[in-house]
């Protein structure tokens, strides 16, 4: 192993000896100086995860979160210098993390928070204007064959748990004690302007959006959603998408 590899490996392994070949400028204890550096590396990465997953942290408490994040950090250190993107594998890690089993919705809440960070950093795009929609409406015969494109920040999470309500309750919206975590919800995450929005999708809304994202024609995407959910109502998800600037073109 190269010196550099040894050095990085020792940074993430508290039991590894201090790498050889190091010197201190003032002759202070090498092992102690290295321990400080080792600690800072792990703590700063845990802090980065805590910033990305604030509701996940609140759900399990600071101590539990930091212990769990510490294990993740050592097992999966960043592969990119962009800390904003760090934590991609954290939700899947949580799902497999035995001690978190008692909070089954934790991984999905983390997935939602990851979508929010992605939306925050996604490219800007001009949302569809009311005039463009009106123009499409002027030729209704062509409507079913039109295709909509989604905003680059758009993300959808289909969950077996009440992810949106749980997340919202931690933003002071609604009462946490009244949220039943076991009611399935689908979340739409989008940043039409500057603020990332988290919106609960009506049944079938996720299917409709997936259809748009996959390049299906309007009529086909709507039919797919209707066949997936008997009580699918096209108006509501369309209104949500338009209001939050989640669609960028309709051609």
């Amino acid at each position: 192993m190269s010196d550099q590899r040894l050095f990085t490996a020792a940074l993430l392994d508290p039991d590894a000896p201090c790498p050889t070949g190091l010197t201190t400028w003032n002759g202070s204890d090498l092992a102690r100086r290295f321990a400080v550096y080792r600690n800072n590396v792990v703590v700063s990465l845990i802090d980065a995860l805590a910033d990305t997953f604030p509701v996940t942290l609140e759900l399990v408490g600071d101590e539990f979160f930091r212990a769990m994040a510490g294990i993740f950090v050592r097992a999966a250190p960043p592969t990119s210098a962009l800390l904003a993107e760090y934590g991609e594998g954290f939700p899947a890690f949580i799902e497999r993390f035995e001690p978190a089993r008692s909070v089954p919705y934790l991984a999905d809440v983390a997935r939602l928070e990851l979508l929010r960070v992605r939306a925050f950093h996604a490219a800007d795009a001009e949302p569809l204007t009311p005039e463009q929609v009106a123009r499409a409406l002027a030729d209704p015969e062509r409507l079913p064959a039109l295709r909509a494109t989604c905003h680059p920040s758009l993300g959808v999470l289909r969950s077996r748990y009440a992810v949106v309500s749980l997340w919202a309750a931690h933003q002071g919206i609604g009462d946490l004690a009244r949220v039943d975590p076991f009611l399935p919800e689908s979340a739409l995450v989008v940043r039409g302007g500057l603020e990332v929005q988290v919106i609960a999708l009506p049944p079938g809304g996720d299917v409709l959006i997936a259809g748009f994202a996959n390049g299906l024609m309007l009529g086909d995407a709507a039919a797919l959603a209707a066949s997936a959910h008997a009580d699918f109502d096209l108006t509501t998800p369309l209104a949500l998408l338009l209001r939050h600037g989640a669609l960028c073109s309709l051609n």
Binding site: G61, V103, D180, F182
Partner: peptide, 13 residues
């Protein structure tokens, strides 16, 4: 440590 954040306050039927 065990999870002891707001999940304990989260209702579960």
């Amino acid at each position: 440590y065990v999870p002891k954040g707001s999940c304990e306050k989260t209702a579960s039927s």
